[in-house]
Design a protein around this nucleic acid. Structure first.
Lengths: 135, 135
DNA sequence: TTAGCTGCAAATACTTTGCACTGGG
DNA sequence: CCCAGTGCAAAGTATTTGCAGCTAA
């Protein structure tokens, strides 16, 4: 589905700011924070507009918010396959990995829990040292 | 180990503010944010001091920072056994659970990764609906 | 005694809100 | 045409920094 269609399908007007945002996120490999995103868009696009676009896209499940340790939230397109992040604690490099095990863990936890009725989401991220930083 | 000794062992002076903070965190069942903590301490303890105590205790591994979705950071004593949190997305209720599986996942990810040398930490939390909220 | 801590004030950083104008459909 | 969306300004929060005075050791 092309960018304009995706934006409209989510119930929004396809403005040039929104089109540029989606195209920019399509090009990025890893979740970016507000600052990164503002820097990546036309200088004329206000940071406030970026906040508003991301909030709206998040509500519409077009964009996914990623919260890593101590950092401000980062954003990535939600259509990317479900994955988790491994982060270098030294340089901040982020890489993706996939894992299905947590689903089973969720079910186990639910079975044992006296107080929870359902599980609707999870966060699972790893922190480590990347090879360049390990040297 | 008693509170004063623990604080001193971490390399700090056992001031009344720090003693009160540790005693307060010992009583709490789940990680609290800055606001909760300030409210729980003597009115005379400045919020700035709370920020500074938590930052120092975190560096000294006396306190652990917990980052949940979209929330400001929360803090709990680090001596509590390694555990994860399950959070009700409706009322914010937090419960603990333990799981060892993520260690194995970490090793698998590391084995497959071309760019990471070591894993030093992780975050794993579940989100769901608690029984009272499900009704 | 004296360096580590604290409280108060102020600076900085981040995010949200209000409002008039613009442009997408 | 008209209302969702934008930019600019300003307000609201969260967090950090500077510094003078206090206090634990």
């Amino acid at each position: 589905m092309d960018v304009l269609t995706r934006i409209r399908a989510a119930g929004f007007r396809a403005t040039k700011q929104r089109i540029e945002l989606v195209r920019f996120l399509e090009k990025t490999e890893h979740p970016l924070d507000i600052q990164d995103i503002v820097k990546g868009l036309s200088r004329s696009t206000d940071m406030v507009t970026v906040y508003r676009m991301l909030a709206a896209f998040k509500r519409a499940d077009l964009v996914r918010e990623v919260n890593l340790r101590g950092e401000h939230p980062r954003y990535e397109l939600a259509d990317e396959s479900d994955h988790h992040h491994i982060v270098c604690t030294d340089c901040g490099r982020i890489e993706d990995f996939t894992d299905e095990t947590h689903e089973r863990i969720g079910k186990q936890v639910l079975a044992r829990s006296k107080s929870f009725e359902a599980i609707t989401g999870h966060s699972f991220d790893l922190y480590g040292v990347c090879k360049p930083c390990a040297k």
